[in-house]
Design a protein around this nucleic acid. Structure first.
Lengths: 218, 218
DNA sequence: TTGTTAAGCGGAGGGAGCCTCCGTATCTTC
DNA sequence: GAAGATACGGAGGCTCCCTCCGCTTAACAA
């Protein structure tokens, strides 16, 4: 029997899961996290098994497909990001709350190198992880977006799906030097574009950029 | 000797390239274009060779690495996109010219499914193709951006590199249904964010959206 | 404790794709 | 037509994928 987190109510006729199975599952997860973050989502599964100190068969029994492994590794990470949106609901300025969430997302991506690549792969393979993540993050963005739109501070014709897609896309290019500040700049532009300009105001931009404006080279 | 397009001035001591070599090179390119566009950039090179009707060795002799093959296939495509920017330089409204270029880019991506994926891969591997494309497209965007900034219609602290990254990022998520209209919407928001709002004007958005605004679901 | 048995373990092995190498075939040149 | 340069094809060695199955071990019962 495969142990599934959150399903430990084995009160029925099922046996208690074997201790070694639980242990090995945890080891594989730990190893996969490390290996994916280092070598990207195409890293060798045999390397994961070796790092975990288990046979390749054990790995496949717990996670029959590559996507299953991704899913287990990254599901919690997505939830963290989602919870942040919940907290930001209480911020005063709804536009700023959205901006802050997006920035946190960038930071998050920066520390979990493998995640965006894994998600990008999940998009293409149409896996269950993708559906979960997309649904979860869409809801997170949606709540922030709704609040801002309800307050009349932001245009209402942009869906959370649109925004999420744009956000992930920008982060996807995160292998180049300086990607992080570039994405932050772009997000500022984006949020500015989303703003409904207060009537009569003359200033072009309502928010400070993430960094002092960089002198253009070209 | 390997025949390289645009280098047929074999007036020196070099021999005329063999006819079969030229023919095979062309066949491989044609096959690769088809196979990559259909199956993505991870498609089997042996499949390409088979489709081209040549041995795998022949393929590797002409294109020692996967990236070399991408490069040959997609270099011209990038140039097309770059030339479009040249033409748009003559448009009256510089902001609109930028917007039009970005939209054309979306259409372009829509018809060449394999290209974005190939470029994304090229980014990660830091290949020569990427350097070429990035440089070329950066220049294209840069010229449009400069014109708009010089006319005072657009903020000047965004680099062409930033914009290109954002654009490609958005397009990268192009496997989902409805991606195209989503990206068009996002680009409109983005360009709005780039605009310097004329003093005293009260309208929030200066351009019509690509499609009638969609009623939000959430 | 000890025996029974289901659950889990490891890794051999077949398959697919990558890339190299070299004997053979073909083209160019004289 | 002969010689020599050039290119061809695919066998073969490698890595990784994933499956399958005989052996081991932990849980439970007595």
């Amino acid at each position: 029997m495969i142990y599934i987190a959150g399903m430990d109510d084995h009160t029925d006729q099922t046996r208690k899961p074997r201790a070694d199975a639980v242990r090995n599952r945890e080891r594989v997860l730990e190893a996969a996290k490390a290996v994916f973050n280092a070598g990207g989502p195409e890293a060798s599964l045999e390397a994961v098994a070796k790092r975990a100190g288990v046979g390749i068969g054990t790995l496949y029994r717990h996670f029959p497909t590559r996507e299953d492994l991704f899913e287990a590794v990254y599901r919690r990470e997505v939830e963290q990001l989602s919870e942040l949106a919940e907290q930001l609901k209480n911020a005063k300025d709804p536009v700023d709350a959205l901006r802050r969430w997006l920035r946190s997302g960038v930071e998050f991506v920066a520390t979990k190198k493998g995640m965006v690549a894994a998600l990008a792969l999940a998009v293409q393979s149409g896996s269950e992880l993708y559906a979960f993540s997309f649904e979860r993050l869409t809801k997170a963005i949606g709540s922030l977006l709704d609040r801002a739109a309800a307050a009349g501070a932001m245009r209402a014709d942009i869906s959370p799906e649109d925004l999420l897609r744009a956000f992930f896309g920008m982060c996807y290019m995160h292998d180049q030097p300086g990607w992080q500040s570039s994405v932050l700049r772009m997000l500022d532009v984006f949020v500015d574009g989303l703003r409904v300009q207060p009537a009569g105001k003359t200033k072009a931009r309502a928010a400070k950029p993430a960094k002092p404006a960089v002198k253009r080279k070209r």
